[in-house]
Computed example of a mutant assay.
Amino acid sequence: MRKNPSRLTAEESKLLTKVMTMGLGTTLPVMMSPSELAKLIGVIYHDTDCGDELKESHPQLWEQIAPKADYYDLPEDWFLEPIHLEPEQHVALIKTGEEQIEDFTTYLRCLSELHKRRRKYRMILSAQPMPTMIQVSPRSLVEYGTTEPQALASWLTWRKFFYDLDNRSAQETGYLFEPILAAAIGGEQKSARAKVVTRSGDATKGRQVDCWKVLPNGDTLAYEFKLRVTIAASGQGRFGEEIQFAEDAFNSGAKPILVVLDPTMNPRLEVLQKAFEAKGGRAYLGEEAWEHLEAQAGDVMSRFIEKYVRRPIEDISRFETEHESGGNRKQIDLLDLHASYQRDQIVLQLGEYTRNIKRREDPALSEPEENDTPIEI
């Protein structure tokens, strides 16, 4: 049967749906317009220094989608401004990118996932309701009498509001962090239902795998990604599960690989490292972890990891410095905080920096979305 060049294949249609939409059945769905997707592709051409190739073949299109700066320096509204596109030109642009840029499809999947999560969190900042007194007033018992009731009511409300925002930020980052790294190094996340790794002693129960990768020689790798390993007293059961992961992966015929981006050593991390190595695996920590990820990713996707994951984390982390009292304790010199709330906006002042957040509360966000479960990052 002869292929129709104007029709999307099943895989191309699946990719288009994947990159343009997120959470359509949730409270805060995200759907990119063709113009927005085209501009995101323009960012990829900018990142990979391939803009001249597109400019040569489609000069008018390139003029519309060429970013004037790196992604994080672009105003969010730039992506939302419509441009003139011919019908299905954004689809043709994807096909052109696949021909001109190595690993284009993977880059597009990762960048679109980051972009959609940022879009969603922008909506969360706008729509997350302020807590009600019935939610926070019982918490006054441990502080009542320490300050005036009106001030305490405001303190409890602001504190709960910031907690809600931080919790949703952690959730969105958790949903984003692992899939991006997995895709960038040529693997994919596997749910417990897939049973690529099963529990030792009970093959009917699977384990979630952050990244499952099959090598050309047929060997399989089962990755566990972590930003850090803490020595917190809570989560004893969770830590036992992390130790068990190495054995379960080994017994399932896979090599367990631990990747921890924060190299700060502590007894728990040392135990976890030894558990992976005892089962024929490897543990990559800190700088070695970044080097491993970038080596596995290849030239183009290592550029993505560096630009979109490593550099932002390091840029923020540089404000944390050694505490004068020693003991390897680090802290940040916090800027003074002032927050004011009006019905249509919140104004945050951090030192000399001001941020205005437009507000349009959505009461539905008072309850977590169906798939919103806490994720440790």
Rank of each mutant, 00 (worst) to 15 (best):
D336K: 14
P59D: 01
H323N: 13
E291S: 14
L285W: 06
E291M: 09
L108E: 05
L348C: 09
V300H: 04
R282L: 06
E99Y: 10
Q128H: 06
G187S: 00
F319P: 00
F319M: 10
G298L: 03
A254S: 13
G25P: 05
G237K: 08
A184V: 05
S340Q: 11
A92Y: 11
I94D: 08
E288T: 15
K205S: 04
H90F: 03
E242K: 13
T147E: 15
K39S: 00
P67G: 00
I180V: 15
V197W: 07
A203R: 11
D219M: 11
Q208G: 11
E291D: 14
L80Y: 10
D52H: 11
A254R: 06
F250D: 11
S169N: 15
P267L: 09
Q273F: 01
T105K: 08
L108D: 05
V43T: 10
G23K: 03
L165E: 03
P368N: 01
N356H: 14
D77C: 08
Y341F: 12
N266K: 06
G280W: 02
I332Q: 10
T105S: 14
R359Y: 00
I243N: 03
L215I: 02
E352N: 13
L221D: 10
E63P: 01
P5F: 04
R117D: 10
P75K: 07
H58A: 13
V30F: 02
E224H: 04
P131N: 01
L93Q: 03
L156Q: 04
E288Q: 15
L125A: 07
D73K: 11
A182K: 02
M123F: 06
T48F: 01
Y72N: 13
A151E: 12
V260S: 03
R118T: 09
L40M: 08
E63C: 00
K95R: 15
Y353Q: 15
L350Q: 14
E188V: 07
G97S: 00
E361H: 05
K279N: 14
I185V: 15
F162A: 08
F225K: 06
S112A: 14
S366V: 01
M1K: 10
E148M: 08
K307A: 11
V91K: 13
T26L: 10
Y121C: 07
Q345Y: 15
H90P: 03
E56V: 08
P374K: 06
E143H: 13
M1L: 10
R268W: 06
L141V: 15
